[in-house]
Simulated assay, not measured.
Amino acid sequence: MTSDSNSTARGPVTRAALTVLLLCGLAGATACGKTISVTDASDAPPAAASAATQPPAAQPPAGQSGQPTSNSALQVVDSTAAQNGLTGTGGTVVGAAVQEAPPKWVQLSAVQSPRLGTHLINVNQATLYRFDKDTAQPSQSNCADDCATTWPPVTIVEGGNVYLAGVDPKRIGAIRRQDGQAQVTVGGWPVYRFSGDVKPGDTNGQGVGGTWFAVGPTGEKSAP
């Protein structure tokens, strides 16, 4: 995907049933982000609730090492893993490989392609997708068992970091899946990769079953 470029798309805040604390440190842009709590659908407040009415989360220091913090909150960092001195994938696997354990960190990047327009990829340049049978308000995944084998959820170890490129940190959230793992959401929508995408830039999951679509930087369905 050498022709892809980072998107600068921004949008209004989506209230995704999570506790938010903005972290815009004085050290510079690489420390700017937020802390989010992993939420259960049953614990989610009404969709119309304002974040101003929700209790503040405890604020651990913004992680720069890629290692999990000591609590279950996730750090959303408004810069890439490389900009924070990290190499590798954080443990994110490729294609049909089974994600045996949640990655220590994940990265979401907005790119453009002629077929999909602006959409998200992970650190391995795998296209990320959303499922029409999920819900965004409240955020909830309805893809489990065999579905989750075909469409592996984008999971992360609790206390890990979510790094971003061209994505508004306010759009990022996390839910607890039925198996107890934390899954990343964008605009309230749980995000997945497709086991049928084996090469960087593959988009074989687009339109599958009329319910799976590449996800954009605000959680929308991507289209050229």
Rank of each mutant, 00 (worst) to 15 (best):
G117T: 04
N124S: 14
N71P: 01
S72G: 10
K104P: 00
R10T: 11
Q54N: 08
G160E: 02
Q83S: 10
A96T: 11
S7W: 03
K104Y: 02
A101I: 12
P60A: 03
G207V: 02
T127E: 06
Q140C: 02
L26A: 13
Q137A: 14
A29H: 02
V76Q: 04
C147G: 13
L21V: 10
A144C: 01
P190V: 06
R115K: 12
P55G: 07
A126F: 01
Q107N: 00
G219L: 08
N6L: 06
P61Q: 13
T89N: 03
V215C: 00
L116V: 09
P61T: 12
L74N: 09
V111C: 00
P114G: 08
V184N: 03
A223P: 00
G11A: 13
A41S: 15
V186S: 07
V93F: 06
A101R: 09
G66N: 04
A9I: 15
V191H: 00
D43A: 15
Q181I: 03
R176K: 15
R15V: 14
Y192T: 03
D43P: 04
Q140Y: 04
A48C: 06
S5Y: 07
S195F: 09
A136W: 00
Y163F: 15
D132Q: 08
Q112F: 07
G173T: 03
G160W: 04
S70D: 12
L21W: 00
G90F: 07
N142K: 13
N6H: 04
T39H: 03
V76L: 07
Q83T: 04
G88A: 08
T80R: 00
A44M: 02
A48Y: 02
D197K: 11
S50Q: 06
T2Y: 14
V38C: 12
R10K: 11
V167F: 12
Q67A: 13
V94Q: 15
D179M: 07
D202Q: 08
V98D: 00
A126R: 10
N122V: 01
P103Q: 04
G180K: 09
N71C: 10
T92P: 01
S65T: 15
L164T: 11
L128A: 06
L86I: 12
N124I: 10
L86G: 03
D43G: 11
V38S: 09
G159L: 06
A101H: 01
A223M: 01
T150L: 14
P169Q: 09
M1R: 10
A174E: 14
K104M: 05
S72P: 00
D4C: 11
A16M: 11
W189K: 10
P169M: 11
F131T: 03
A214L: 07
P103M: 05
N124L: 15
V198Y: 13
D4K: 04
V186K: 01
D146T: 13
D43Y: 05
D197H: 12
W212N: 05
T218G: 14
F213C: 00
W212Q: 11
